[in-house]
Write a protein that binds this DNA or RNA. Structure first.
Lengths: 147, 147
DNA sequence: TATTGTTATACTCTATAACTATA
DNA sequence: TATAGTTATAGAGTATAACAATA
């Protein structure tokens, strides 16, 4: 859905954020990657970790991560191996091919950002970041739906 | 999903927008309304129109609108009646009860916005709006997913 | 008994195509 | 034949619970 009271700042931010997210996801896809798979590679870039840790970092349920890692592994972009210290655990690691794919993803995201924010000066982009950082977005966990 | 490179302005805007949207939807729900139903009432507030027009204005498929209007009608918040001039058409209209519900929704959204943007001065809110308006969000329709 | 990863199930959203009644 | 609304169906995404292996 979309289209309406952008005279309200909350709606404006929500809609712009949604469209920006769509543009970013399109960029993530240029390397042939599903957006969530690309996000996963980003998480793995700094260093390997267990599936449990990875799921927590990405804020997804561990069961969802299984399908993501199956795909990444079948594409040779990430690997799972048993932790010798605790054989219940999988250590997840990005591969060289995965790192190369991530480089392409990064370039595509940068291009998307140049497009999105190209009408703003550097100073204005800093200003926008500062304002967005001050939006109170975590106040008291409101529920969403209703009958 | 969430949680990652908020050092990139695109991600920051996308994430803040998503959380802001969640907060707004929670507000839409306080009057007991499903968010999309509340959005529909907003569209209808200025005046009645056909389902086709309403679907176009909301950027949803006409078939999705059917369920929304069924719910709104069963709750007495909107009404469909045949257009005498063209009996294929339904004129959709907000009811008094619908307008009353919309008033409650508006109040809840205003409260949510005060919470979201309460740390910003009026001038800063104007500034934020101006910057968001200049984000280029409609450049050349990029597709999203990939294998 | 608790934890890690996995599988299975169900529920929401959305996209599409077929159907009806009018024109 | 074309259009407005409706219904039916299928796909993606997500949330939850049960399960096997290991601790």
């Amino acid at each position: 859905m979309a289209a309406l009271p952008t005279d309200r700042l909350g709606f404006l931010l929500s809609f712009r954020g949604e469209l920006t997210g769509a543009r970013i996801r399109a960029a993530l896809g240029v390397a042939g990657l599903h957006p969530r798979n690309a996000m996963t590679l980003m998480q793995l870039a700094p260093g390997s970790m267990s599936q449990r840790e990875l799921a927590a970092a990405m804020e997804v349920d561990p069961s969802q991560l299984v399908a993501i890692l199956n795909e990444l592994e079948s594409e040779g972009l990430a690997e799972r191996r048993r932790d010798p210290a605790d054989r219940r655990r999988h250590i997840v690691e990005i591969t060289e091919a995965g790192a190369a794919a991530l480089d392409r993803v990064d370039a595509a995201v940068s291009a998307a950002e140049r497009e999105l924010f190209g009408d703003l000066t550097e100073a204005e982009q800093v200003l926008l970041r500062g304002l967005l950082d001050r939006v109170v977005v975590d106040a008291g966990e409101h529920d969403c739906d209703a009958g």
